[in-house]
């Protein structure tokens, strides 16, 4: 990685030089600008690399949940709407958090997935209209409702959000490394 960083400026220079005569084999398509890439790139890694600047708290999120129409579809408390439930079932504290159900802000191994999904997909019908501050606040609120965070003044931002330890962070099965022409599961005949 260190070596790679040192080499980067050289590679970039070479890249610019090469671009003049199209570095690609077919020379079809164009190079997007850095601004275009930033505007398109809404995928947030579990490490939070792409998270934008901004911040929010559950306290602010509670208000936004009503203002932004979330409550209209998911219910005032996130439990009683036509749209999926957003709060874990009232089953006490479980040894295995999987038992709380398929509810994003409790089951997801990473808080980044919650942020990412709200940012790209909600509120349904007006997706993509929330500001980063608003997404941080609403994410904080949903994590607060699910007892993942307990302080409604806790500030979520690009540093703190990826560090939140979700109950299932280490509690999920990775898919196997995939190679062509391999059975789907070693030592499984079917």
């Amino acid at each position: 990685m260190r070596l790679f960083n040192l080499l980067l400026p050289v590679v970039m220079l070479l890249g610019i030089a090469a671009h003049a005569q199209s570095p690609t084999k077919y020379g079809v398509g164009r190079t997007p600008s850095a601004e275009e890439i930033t505007a398109w790139d809404i995928a947030i890694a579990p490490t939070g690399d792409e998270l934008p600047a901004g911040s929010g708290t559950a306290d602010l999120g509670a208000q936004l949940f009503l203002e932004k129409g979330c409550a209209g579809c998911h219910g005032t408390n996130g439990t009683d709407g036509l749209a999926p439930r957003l709060v874990k079932r009232d089953v006490g504290i479980l040894e295995n958090p999987w038992g709380y159900g398929r509810i994003l802000p409790i089951r997801s191994p990473y808080a980044t997935t919650v942020w990412d999904y709200i940012n790209r997909g909600m509120p349904l019908g007006a997706e993509g209209t929330l500001s980063p501050d608003e997404v941080y606040s609403i994410t904080a609120y949903l994590l607060y409702l699910n007892d993942v965070i307990t302080d409604d003044q806790m500030v979520l931002n690009q540093d703190t959000l990826p560090k939140i330890k979700m109950p299932n962070q280490d509690n999920w099965a990775q898919v196997p490394d995939w190679f062509p022409n391999q059975p789907r599961l070693q030592d499984y005949p079917f």
Partner: peptide, 26 residues
Amino acid sequence: QYYMTYNDYGHLTQDPATAALGYQIG
């Protein structure tokens, strides 16, 4: 890295065998 998108998340299980068997179709 594995990005754990909402689709990826929806596919998660706790059991490695189930995860493998829900990937490449048999």
